[in-house]
Design a protein around this nucleic acid. Structure first.
Lengths: 135, 135
DNA sequence: CGGTATCCCACTAGATACTG
DNA sequence: CAGTATCTAGTGGGATACCG
């Protein structure tokens, strides 16, 4: 995710005390929302939260029908972000274990807020969609 | 966003009391995460939350460099989901006002949880990324 | 087992121009 | 003002095959 850097602050004082403004093109918040938006990110984090530690193949089956290529990309991205850690053992056959870092665990709180909202309100959303579809 | 419907429940009892399982391919939570992931959704919601009511062009300037086509798509999707409401007046020149529905307002809570996390932890994420980049 | 290496497609979203 | 209409490009993600 690459964003441009012009007009970070407008002239209406919409930035908050910490200097953040979600409506600014380069607000750090977008880093998070960008990751969240990626198709398998949440599932990987939630699977690891649930299991503690998982190997590549375990993760693959937990998460659904993700292809190895995409799962690898997802894992690398999350590792680069410091959200998960990867431990490779020098065994034969190979053995690699993934788990959440403390930073990754701290993400669970907002994620669960989202999930809680979804579980509570998704029926309303689906009902609204059906109304819209049959209009 | 369309997902398939097989293997909703696995054999390890991972669904919760309400019958939801984020790791299931068709969990309703994905509806939410799908929307969140779309590029302009959050920005529109936050702009409306901040301003209360906005017209099309106001929304356009608030939100950044979105094209009219994409903004329209975003607004329709959000309207179909019951998150925003659109009121058109029969004036000339035309006048249309967008605002959050109560459902849309209820989404602000989890959104802010995410934003709060982002503002608190994004420096760590960025630091991790730099470490990864120079490795 | 834990990935890479290729190839490929759908789909998001941008640019641009036009209209009731 | 508030959009629609086209056309196009970039890329996230999938399928498949192969490797140390």
């Amino acid at each position: 995710m690459r964003v441009d850097v012009t007009s970070v602050v407008d002239d209406r004082g919409t930035t908050d005390v910490a200097g953040h403004d979600v409506l600014a093109p380069d607000c750090p918040s977008r880093v998070v929302f960008g990751r969240i938006g990626e198709r398998w990110t949440m599932l990987v984090i939630l699977a690891l939260a649930r299991a503690g530690t998982l190997r590549f193949t375990e993760l693959k089956t937990q998460v659904g029908r993700v292809t190895p290529k995409v799962l690898t990309e997802t894992l690398r991205a999350l590792e680069d972000d410091g959200l998960i850690s990867r431990r490779a053992f020098q065994d034969s056959p190979p053995r690699v274990e993934y788990s959440l870092t403390p930073l990754g665990e701290s993400l669970l709180e907002p994620i669960d807020a989202m999930r809680a909202w979804a579980e509570r309100h998704v029926p309303e959303v689906l009902a609204a969609r059906e109304r819209a579809a049959s209009a």
